[in-house]
Design a binder for these strands. Structure first.
Lengths: 241, 241
DNA sequence: CGCCGTCTTGCGTAAACCCGCAGCTTGTTG
DNA sequence: CAACAAGCTGCGGGTTTACGCAAGACGGCG
């Protein structure tokens, strides 16, 4: 006897998931559906859901936010994230909120039926983590040191993306002005902002700060949902003076 | 006897569209499918497609690019855009490329079956433009003057989003440095960057330039695909010296 | 312990940015 | 034509960035 909650924007995908769950998990007797993050949180609470399939990109309240509050209330909940994209921003966002030892999964929508069903069984029955190969690559890169970004670098990237001044960042992160600028330089380095900037003409130079943000976007280190979350955190911080 | 080409990333949506076309257009005898923009362009060329349903957001080559090259070759092609979002960035992108007098449509994926089928008939049979109400609102706002952005303002927004310096923008757009800065000020005004910046403490000031880009993103004036296109144009321009 | 690499901080400078002020060129309107 | 709004431009100056240089601080490691 098992109950599964599906949180997914798109009706088509929702019914597809419903079918997939039925097919992969005969021991599951009830499937409930939510069409956005807010409703998802509520249903999870009401039903004390232990097994959730969650879309990441939703209009009303995105999957990461929803998962965070759900996990905060019941950390042993098993959540399978099912997403269109494997942006580093999402991967980073997810790994930041998963509780210690929790079973979760990350499967791309482009995966085959088989893969999805296998993931459903592995996570919900066997309590194993299942992370799509493609996503796994990013995860390694972002956590390891190879070519990836440190947390502090990522932090400052977000800060300039939000449009904070050096001084404001310094205050927020408890650093001196110069340290902030140091980190910025590291960031510029890693993002190859110079190469594209300098080229060799004095002509077409870039504004490093703005360019860094753009490059990060184009490389999917940042995306809309990451910005949205960061902006919310910023507002929160601003009110706490 | 009619032939319809479907260009859509997601297999689920693709088959849904296929069914919808069959149901709405009995006079249509062949439906062909493409799973990304590149293939879509090729099939459109090979089949001399006159009726196309096109997704906007696709990984390989997005709908706007594809539509542009298709329309360049055969401007009387009828295209129905079918998109998840109604970001101003998309709306602006589409209206920029639609040829004079061409019949096209813009329907959101959240629309009902009925609406989709109606749109299919209106555009492909009656040669009428059908634009989703929600999208229409944006279009009006962006073309009209009410609260919307001038083309020149939008242009400069894109330029700073790309990370160009004032000087570079001036060169690119054939303006003086000061004029560029004037436009920036207008932009800052319209985006309300000051209000959120000034607040009243000297404390948490924003870097106006970076903040403007963020606000634009959060308001969906910009999105990934718009950035991508703009970046491509920029590179092109850089090479033409 | 001394050596070394990484991180932080202050100082100083050149460049870029933000913007008020004022003169000019337009297109529009009575 | 006069008048007026809207946009372009140069000038000047206050602020913010970007970054080299150099002096500590901290943590391994032989």
């Amino acid at each position: 006897m098992m109950k599964v909650l599906i949180v997914e924007d798109d009706p088509l995908h929702r019914s597809y998931l419903h079918e997939a769950v039925n097919a992969a998990l005969p021991e599951c007797d009830t499937v409930i559906e939510a069409e956005n993050g807010t409703v998802g949180e509520k249903l999870a609470r009401d039903h004390k859901s232990a097994h959730i399939v969650m879309d990441l990109q939703m209009a009303n309240r995105n999957g990461i936010e929803a998962a965070r509050t759900i996990w905060k209330e019941r950390p042993e909940t098993r959540i399978l994230f099912w997403s269109n994209y494997s942006d580093e921003a999402y991967v980073r966002g997810v790994s930041r909120i998963v509780p210690d030892g929790a079973a979760y999964g990350y499967v791309l929508k482009s995966a085959s039926d088989e893969r999805l069903k296998l993931a459903l069984r592995s996570i919900f029955i066997e309590s194993q983590c299942v992370i799509d190969r493609e996503v796994r690559g990013l995860q390694q890169k972002s956590l390891g040191q190879t070519n990836g970004f440190t947390d502090s670098e990522y932090e400052i990237l977000v800060d300039i993306a939000l449009g904070l001044t050096d001084r404001a960042i310094a205050k927020r992160r408890g650093l001196s002005l110069r340290s902030v600028q140091n980190r910025l330089q590291q960031l510029y380095d890693k993002l190859d902002v110079y190469q594209s900037a300098g080229d060799d003409h004095e002509d077409g130079r870039f504004n490093l700060r703005a360019r860094a943000v753009t490059v990060a976007f184009l490389r999917k280190l940042l995306n809309y949902s990451a910005l949205e979350r960061a902006e919310a955190e910023l507002q929160e911080w601003l009110e706490g003076k």
